[in-house]
Amino acid sequence: MNFWHTVAAITWKDTISEMRTKEIVSSVLVFTLLVIVIFNFSFGATQQTMKVVAPGILWVTFAFAGVLSLNRLFVPEKEQDCLEGLMVCPVSREAIYTGKMLGSLIFMLVVEVIALPIFTLLFNLPVLSLQIVTITVLATFGFVVVGTLFSAVAINTKAREMVLPILFFPIISPVIISAVKATEISLAGGSWSSLVPWLPMIAAFDAIFFVVSFLIFSYVIEE
């Protein structure tokens, strides 16, 4: 059976389930907005300080939102042992990984699509530019490629809500560093070429960890 056919079936299944409950997207979105507002309180919200701290706020918010949504990713697979149901299907484990990963990417992007304009509005900063959208898509992809793998690990641990961030944050630190730096440069009006060390860094991270996670995912779910 066709690899992408399986991937599409899994992503589709996760997406309609999410569209029905809106469990992940709604809670993560509310969380994101709250974090943005609270950061506003803690930094005094003058235009001057905001310019300096906004990139950090944006990426801390998205990283935490990512953990929150990734924590839920394998919960439906655990209820009624659905993951075992998937494992007895004649499909490759790599397809299961890719399908789950794409589903998670969609949820995160939906949250960000709503959060970015609000961010623009509340911070009075031009966050909604092509440059920043590119950075966001690349960095979010980086989050979910390792996040999906670690989410599958965390689901079988005690205190999984705590395990995921402990695994996730150190590994994605290069993505956070690069995304913050690139956003900073972009907000200061830098050109595409001034984003150079950072965007390729995120892209390289994405490519490397997609391949590695793709290859080792089967070792996570196979007993």
Partner: peptide, 30 residues
């Protein structure tokens, strides 16, 4: 924190692999 020792061994092996691949990227980005 894994639910049984065999899982713990497997999961930490995953961290061992991902971690090493990440080290050069972390070094470069910092």
């Amino acid at each position: 924190l894994a639910t049984d020792p065999e899982r713990g061994a497997r999961y930490s092996a995953i961290v061992g692999i991902i971690g090493l691949v990440d080290i050069p990227i972390i070094a470069l980005s910092t």
